[in-house]
Design a protein around this nucleic acid. Structure first.
Length: 887
DNA sequence: GCGGACTGCTTACCT
DNA sequence: ACAGGTAAGCAGTCCGCG
């Protein structure tokens, strides 16, 4: 019997399907519960920190961390959200200073008062006052009128808001952000609340941090202290729901007809609970245990939902994976469908997110999908963003493998499947001493952005937010994008790549062959260093001062300010210095205990994310402070400096065999000459050239960004080669790595002869297996990502799109980000999704042999081994051997 | 009608 | 919803070809 039938039965029998009456006061229960639990929770701030609070003579010792802010539309006031480590809950503090929404106009107050648009809003305009701000673009003082209003919607957010009708400045900053910044508040800092006002608590920094303080500028010291503040443990619970869906139906919040039959919960306090709706009527017990989880059995879905809400309200942080788009919207929709009362008292559904009333909701899917988090924080450890792949990559465990449908599973397996999801969702925030939670808080500190926004917005927004704060501090009028675009200045070079806006980095033509003893030198964070050293920022590039116009970027007519420090240049400079000079050192200092070292490592890693992204965002049209000449100035300086380094190296008779952007590969250099080069470069350009690594040997072809090498330490470095790419079939990948493994061990000519024979055997054997169709289908799949909605492939239809369309015909949903596994087949399309291939006889073996050859060619070419149809040839073997062992 | 030369599109990589 | 530079495979087009 299938669940399907039970479901119908349930639908008829369950009285709550008709009319729901609930006599539980969820609020009261959750309050009672949190009172009970209070005493069990301890302060997690170090003893020393508490002492420093006493030093400040603050009577209330209740130290809170500021984690969020918002606007209460009913009260018409902004509020702050603090985390209370004593009670493990959040405290909402409504503003009592009378702060109001505002924006700036360049019209005078009188002009504004007679303006039609303004008069229409007169009942909502509190005041118009003149202020003097500094305009960074003209480097002069400007008079502006601050229009103070009753409601943020008067400024923006509606069709007839002021910013749609008249020229306004600073009108696209969210009101609670304005509020935070105007009060000088910073997310992630500690406060006590006295007389309804937040008062900053300065914690005593740990000894190892204090050591650095005296050498730093005051701004750097502020960063040092703020970032090194401890991050308290945040009490949290992961939630995951399972919806019973009939076969072939994907549950969607828009269609909440299907029951939520499991809600699994995993808390940072050890909570392991599954709420299970016994659709199959299998259990007489109220509670059973599965895998250490307490499973509460429900016969009624409303009770189950209410119980879940009751439990999660004990946790100020709610974790989900896709909770913004699925779990929470479904709970809301289903609760409304079942007429569960007062669901709005718990959840607010926004356009792109769901917030909770008792704390903060973090959707980990959004956070891990963030390109900066993926690539910089976790160095691309996962490429597909799913709970399974991320968990496997980061915590070494994935989801439970399941059949396609719950009906094909027994109940215990369904429960195990469900609890695993909540379990790994929580674990993703807990591994390595809560690394992810700490990372989120540190990013919030660097960007001064609320925890909610940090986890949902991308790096350009993080950077924008901090820069807005810095503008406020300097009393700068924040320019609108169009103000920056109106500045003079043009592009100087045609970009190398079609469709790009400006020229980028220089890549040196590689010298093909096998090169022994290769030293790779590179400029440490070249672009950020250029921005710092050459004062590059939107307002300093092509600045308004006559006397700066001679300070030219090489080979251009772009000039750079000599008089004022650029705001972006200063920001990147400070965080670069504090990372390199302090937090990187702390993270490597063996005299510091490991957990602290890990914390410093998180800080330096978070700083790196910002440092690496800042140049990029200045060249991105969607960034508020986008200015093409400033982005171009960075890359042109980069090209200039690497070119000067090459010239200097050549003068010293150093042999450069390759280089990319900020690196030079130098063949068998004399130590003295190398040192001379690095010294000269630093003295001339104030940029550090350092030894990055040394290769025992490196194998280059004529292709740029494609090589492999064995380092002095014996590890194999593979860059860009086809065999490394994710879309190479596993079978070919294996052979590629088998051959590289053989090459790695070569020490002399005799080894080579043996290895050469082995390589030839490997290739011939692989071809034979392909022709005889002995390779299983799984080994032949080519995984390709769908990058946009299928209907947007209008110009061409690539093979993976053709295959995806076949899957759609089968009822499969394909989204951007879906990975299609295709197999080259001998049908008219030349390709099929692996799911639709019935047997290996359909495989186009010839295509795979071609693919094998082209993949291997990249590594064998340099050794003069040629692979052709059905044979492997060593071309001019004697010469190739000589070449191989020349040095 | 068919294939080679070519361009453009797409993906995945490097820095 | 951070940049440009590069390789590779394929789609699509044009042109020549008694």
């Amino acid at each position: 019997m299938t669940l399907d039938k039970y479901f119908k039965l349930y639908e008829k029998e369950d009285p709550h399907y008709q009319e729901v009456e609930v006599d539980i006061n969820i609020e009261a229960i959750s309050k009672a519960r949190s009172n009970d639990e209070r005493d069990n929770q301890r302060v997690t701030i170090d003893e020393t920190d508490v002492t420093s609070i006493a030093d400040k003579n603050i009577d209330n010792n209740n130290v809170l961390m500021l984690i969020s802010a918002g606007y209460d539309a009913n009260e018409m006031k902004p509020y702050l959200i603090f985390y209370d480590p004593n009670r493990d809950n959040v405290v909402k503090l409504l503003d009592d200073t009378g702060h109001k929404p505002y924006a700036y106009s360049k019209l005078s107050p009188n002009q504004l008062r007679s303006n039609d648009v303004i008069t229409r809003y007169s009942n909502k305009i509190i005041d118009i006052v003149e202020e003097v701000k500094h305009d960074p673009i003209t480097d002069s003082e400007v008079k502006v009128s601050k229009i103070i209003v009753t409601d943020p919607l008067v400024i923006g957010g509606k069709k007839d808001s002021l910013r749609e009708k008249i020229d306004l400045w600073e009108a696209d900053i969210k009101y609670y952000v304005n509020y935070l910044f105007d009060q000088g508040l910073q997310i992630g800092d500690y406060y006590v609340i006295k007389d309804g006002k937040p008062i900053k608590v300065n914690l005593n920094p740990p000894q190892e941090v204090e050591k650095f303080a005296e050498k730093l500028s005051s701004e750097e010291r502020e960063w040092l202290y703020r970032l090194s503040q401890p991050v308290i443990n945040l009490k949290r619970v992961a939630l995951d729901i399972e919806v019973y869906n009939p076969r072939g139906v994907m549950p969607q919040p828009e269609d909440p007809r299907h029951p939520i039959f499991i809600i699994s919960l995993r808390g940072s306090d050890g909570l392991k609970k599954v709420l299970f709706l016994d659709l199959r009527r299998e259990y007489k017990e109220d509670i059973i245990e599965v895998d250490g989880y307490e499973v509460e059995i429900f016969r009624n879905e409303v009770n189950l939902i209410q119980r879940a809400i009751e439990i999660v309200k004990n946790y100020p942080i709610l974790l989900t994976f896709n909770g913004d788009t699925f779990d929470l919207p479904y709970i809301i929709a289903r609760a409304k469908f079942l007429k569960v009362p007062n669901i709005e008292d718990s959840f607010h559904k926004g356009r792109n997110e769901v917030s909770i009333t008792w704390g903060i909701h973090i959707d980990l899917y959004k956070f891990f999908k963030n390109a900066s988090i993926k690539n910089y924080a976790f160095s691309g450890a996962y490429d597909i963003v799913s709970l399974d792949t991320i968990a496997k990559a980061l915590i070494g465990k994935g989801k439970v493998e399941t059949p396609e449908h719950f009906d094909d599973m027994n109940t215990i397996d369904i429960i195990k499947y469900a609890l695993t999801d909540a379990d790994i969702t929580y674990e993703l925030t807990a591994f390595n001493n809560d690394l992810v939670m700490r990372l989120i808080v540190i990013i919030a500190r660097i960007s001064n952005m609320t925890i909610d926004d940090v986890t949902r917005l991308a790096v350009s927004n993080w950077i924008r937010n901090r820069l807005i704060y810095l503008h406020r501090r300097r009393n700068y009028l924040i320019p609108r994008p169009e103000d920056i675009h109106k500045k003079t200045g043009t592009r100087h070079f045609q970009p190398v790549t079609k469709g790009k806006k400006y020229v980028g980095a220089l890549v040196i033509d590689p010298k093909p062959g096998i090169h022994f003893n290769v030293v790779v030198v590179d400029f440490a964070s070249l672009y950020p260093s250029i921005m710092k050293e050459y004062n590059i920022s939107y307002e300093t590039v092509n600045c308004p001062h006559e006397q700066c116009k001679t300070n030219l970027v090489p080979n251009t007519s772009t000039w750079i300010c000599r008089l004022k420090k650029g705001i972006i240049s200063e920001f990147v400079g400070i965080i670069r210095d504090i990372r390199v000079n302090v937090f990187k050192k702390l993270s490597k200092d063996k005299s510091i205990e490991q957990s602290k070292r890990e914390f410093y490592n998180v800080i330096q890693g978070a700083l790196k994310v910002f440092i690496n992204a800042i140049y990029g965002v200045t060249g991105s049209e969607t960034f508020q402070f986008y200015y093409l000449p400033s982005a171009e100035a960075v890359t042109i300086y980069g090209r200039y400096i690497i070119e000067q380094a090459i010239k200097k190296a050549e003068k010293l008779n150093l042999k450069i065999i390759y280089g990319d952007t900020d690196s030079l590969f130098i063949k068998n250099p004399e130590q003295k000459l190398l040192e001379k080069l690095m010294e000269d470069i630093y003295n001339t350009y104030r940029l550090k050239l350092e030894v990055d690594k040394i290769y025992k040997y490196v194998v280059l072809s004529s292709r740029k960004k494609n090589y492999f090498g064995v380092t002095k330490e014996g590890s194999l470095d593979i860059k860009g080669l086809q065999g490394k790419k994710s879309n190479t079939p596993p079978y070919i990948k294996t052979i590629f790595y088998d051959i590289l493994k053989k090459l790695k061990n070569i020490e002399n000519k005799d080894d080579f002869n043996v290895v050469r024979k082995e390589i030839i055997d490997i290739i011939k054997n692989a071809e034979k297996k392909l022709i005889n169709r002995e390779v299983p289908l799984d080994e032949l799949v080519i995984s390709v990502t769908i990058s946009k909605p299928l209907e947007q492939y209008t110009k061409t239809t690539p093979q993976h799109v053709k295959a995806a369309k076949l899957l759609v015909k089968q009822g499969r949903k394909i989204y951007p980000g879906s990975v299609i596994k295709i197999v080259k087949t001998r049908n008219s399309l030349g390709v099929k999704p692996v799911e639709l291939v019935k047997s290996v006889s359909e495989v186009d073996a010839e295509k795979y042999i071609d693919l094998l050859h082209s993949t291997l060619e990249q590594i064998l070419e340099a050794m003069n081994i040629e692979v052709e149809r059905g044979r492997v040839v060593v071309v001019d073997s004697k010469k190739s051997l000589d070449k191989f062992f020349k040095l």
